[in-house]
Each structure stands twice: as C-alpha cells, then as structure tokens.
Design a protein around this nucleic acid. Structure first.
Lengths: 257, 257
DNA sequence: ACGCATTTGTTCGTATGTATT
DNA sequence: TAATACATACGAACAAATGCG
C-alpha cells in the first residue's frame, strides 16, 4: 500500500538531483506558495507581508507551520523578520544589506569608501558568450554597462555588466548615473527584478593593455577576475558581471563554515 | 552568521562587542552548553550525541527547546542530523564534507582530481607575522608544512601551512604523508582539534621566482593568493594557510546568498 | 508618560509521520 | 515487528519589541 521508499543510499549522497520528492511536508508547500507570490510581485521589496497568524488562516494551517516556512525563507534572504513590526520582503536598497554581494574589503587602515564612475551604458546584440550565460537567443538585445569604482581617486574595480535587453527597457546612462544607492536597488525599483543569489568564479589574470590603462596599473599586472552570474526567482539568470579588481589595498573576503 | 542579539539595533551595527547579553533565551543557553561539551571533547567527531529526549531530560527543558538548539548547531556545521539514527558530531573525515573548505573547482571538462606531494614539514620558531595571526608568544614553536597539489602531474596549488607547535606535538612528515584523507581529518584523529570555521582573504599576485619554479609557471605570472585563518571552538585560531593557486584550468568558486 | 494592541520570539506539551536498526 | 530517533504539525501561553493613542 505504501509507495516504495526511495533508496536508502540517497541520504548518503551529496545532492542527488532527485526524482522529484513526490511528497513534501506541509511547511515546504507553504514555502513554495509564498515564494510564488513573491515572484509574482504580490508584495514588493521592502513591504511587509501579512502576519503569521493571517497567513495561517489564509492557508488553513497552524501558525507554527507558517513560521517554519518563513524561517527558511528568511534564512535564504528572501524575507527579513523584525520582531514587533512584521516580516518584510528583502531588498538590496537597505543600508545593512547594501553590500550583500560585494566581498571586496579594504585592508587594515585603508579607507573603504568607493566612488562610482559610469563609463558606458549601451544596448547591443549580446555576444555569443553573454547570450549563453543569460539564456538569450543568439543576437538578442543586451545592455552593456561599464563602470569604475575608485577609492581616494585611485581606480580599484572595473566592472563590465551584461543584462538582458528585454527585461531592462528604458535603462539609460542618465538613469544609472543619477541613481543614488546600490545598482540592485535600481533594478528592483525600476524593473521589478530582485537578485536572489549569485555564483562567482574567481581567477588571477594579467591585465590587458586597455584594462591596465583604465585601472592605472602597468600592463600585465596581476588582477583578480571575478565573474558573477546573478539569478532572480526561478533560478533565472539576469546579470552577468565581469569585475577586474586591484588587490594591493583591497582583498576579496570569504567566510567558510 | 545567525542573528543572535535580541536588540533590533544590534543587527544594524557591524559587531558591537556587546555589554554581554545579560539574559538569553533558554535554547541559546542550551546551545552554549552543548558547544562547551563539544569543545571539551565529551563526544568526539563522528560520534552520536544523546537523543533530543535524553538531552531534554538532562537539561530539564522541553524536547522542542533542545531541538531548536541543535537546529542551530547543525546549521553551523557543528552537528549533523540523521533521521532515524541520531545526531552526530560533524567531522572533516567524511566523504561528503571532505571538501567543505576547498573552494577550488576545475573548469568545465577538466579532471578535478588532485594528487598531493609533501614538500616540507618542520618545527621552528614562529615568524612574527605567523605568531601574531595564531596568537602565539613571539619565538614560540610552530610547525611549517609546505605541500603541492597536482592535477595530471601539473602543479596547481602550493600551500604553506603554519600550526601552533604546542598543539601539534608529534606531527611529522611521515605521519602526514602516510595519512589518507583530508588533513583536517588527521588533525581531528591525532590531535583532537576540529576546524570549525575559517576566514579567507584572496588577492591576485605576481609569482615570485621560487614559487614560480615550484608551480612550473613563468616568473611574474598572475596567481591567486588565498590566505586562510582557521579556527576551532572558542574562536581560537589554530591554522594559518597561505595558498598560491594557478587558475588557468581551475577557479575559486563562491556562492552568494 | 503610560498603557494597549499587534507582531514576532520563546517555551512548553502532545500527537503523528518517517527512517533506521 | 518492534523500538528508537529525528521530522512534522498543531495548539497554547507568555515574553519582548514596536507603534499608536
């Protein structure tokens, strides 16, 4: 009568893609429902979502079950809980989450404030490599942004950013350079796109002549190459970013647990 | 890091040393007690700890409270839960956690298996910089290990590892090179020291002549410099590691959430 | 200044499901 | 099959933080 149980070995393996759970705990189902509503934009970044008790009533489950679903969503940075106030949709626009995706830190005794300088923002056909990463059809439109981050007037980071053109209609150099605050905040506010997670690949490379000139270092200087692919809801890639970091006074910081 | 402080403002600040919580939820107190017992070695890596119900009886709290304490400890990788079997002390010796601290990944289509070659293992006085990082008195003994990781007979990583001499008595080149499995597994088994977390600082540097020779790259080639400080219980630093990575066929992978 | 209502946070208790031995 | 252990779910009560009147 009971369906055959999955292989006992499964638990020992790293992360088998899985034959689709087939069943799933109630709180996981609630979690999925909440995620879907977040994705649909029912509650926008920064807004409060209904209280646990109301959600429990709405979904016809106990408050504790909603709580567990929200716990996981909070843990994955989709939501932020604030005691006494409510639970809010996470946003990149807030102070304390501002640098959630920026791992570049100043060395001891170095002033870490960074100024931004927009170098370029234009629409063009996505190069093959970009199209592949962003899941675009070959030849589809993309936005290319190039910008510089400087510390005390010294260049530190040269970023090249690629975005799917279809999702970022109306993104212009003006809009970009007049925006105060994190770029991902602009994406949320103007285009309704929230970056949910990202993967980075880091390498050491020798500076090409043109990049070296922009970064004011000798040609062939060692630079940190940070390639980032950022995803929104539904594991959809929406940003490809290639950053070249000078690491004489800064370093990429990572915590291992 | 898990939000622990009860004050809402505290979350906004970097890491206020805090006036000592003064109060703390029950489950946090239980968590601290469990951590202390782990640190004391009451249960060794890989062993089962008592069941939730027994711990609840022992501490005179409800099972749910113990559960919440264990949840956090599991989340921080101190413990591993296994349904039906029990809760176990985490260990670096197991297959699936073997590469918990190694973020170097092979590029697509590259064979990622790495061979080890021990270059050196000797005891000496800790250089000033090492002593500072490891909280040693100047001139105290330290163990220096140098080793190479190779992929298909090509050097990929040159590691220089520093350990406090007092904690690693009896660590020899023989012992090291005859050990099969992750080095942190050896540390657990032979010296009772478990690496609980680590911080890494990553930079791009130009290869010095001697390192270039060992890594079989031209002098001044760009290399990834990964400086790691690893901690045991009680935030005690016990390993300083300086790795030079060749990143032509490998990359340092990081996930941002 | 004070108290009240609301919301999340903590703690307990109980029952049932699922995995393992 | 039975016993054990963790996992899920519900319900209830009180604590702590917040905002409002």
């Amino acid at each position: 009568m009971a369906p055959m149980s999955p292989s006992a070995d499964a638990a020992d393996r790293p992360a088998m893609p899985g034959p689709a759970p087939a069943f799933s705990p109630l709180y996981q189902q609630i979690k999925a429902l909440l995620l879907a509503r977040l994705q649909a934009g029912e509650w926008r970044p920064g807004e409060v979502i209904p209280s646990e008790i109301e959600l429990a009533a709405r979904f016809k489950v106990s408050q504790g079950t909603v709580r567990k679903a929200i716990d996981e969503l909070a843990q994955e940075n989709h939501l932020v809980r604030r005691q006494g106030k409510g639970t809010f949709v996470a946003t990149h626009a807030e102070e304390r989450t501002q640098y959630r995706f920026l791992r570049l830190m100043p060395d001891e005794g170095v002033d870490g404030r960074l100024q931004r300088r927009l170098l370029e923002c234009r629409r063009m056909r996505a190069p093959a490599e970009v199209a592949r990463a962003l899941d675009l059809k070959s030849g589809e439109a993309a936005v290319q942004i190039r910008r510089l981050l400087l510390s005390a007037d010294q260049p530190v980071v040269l970023d090249e950013i690629w975005l799917p053109g279809a999702l970022f209609r109306g993104l212009t150099a003006e809009r970009l350079s007049s925006w105060r605050g994190p770029m991902y905040g602009l994406f949320e506010a103007e285009f309704g796109l929230r970056m949910v997670r990202a993967e980075e690949r880091i390498r050491a490379v020798a500076a090409q002549d043109d990049d070296a000139a922009v970064l004011a270092v000798p040609p062939r200087s060692p630079l940190l190459l940070v390639e980032r692919l950022s995803y929104t809801y539904g594991d959809k890639p929406v940003e490809l970013r290639r950053g070249l970091y000078r690491t004489e006074q800064f370093h990429y910081r990572n915590e291992l647990n």
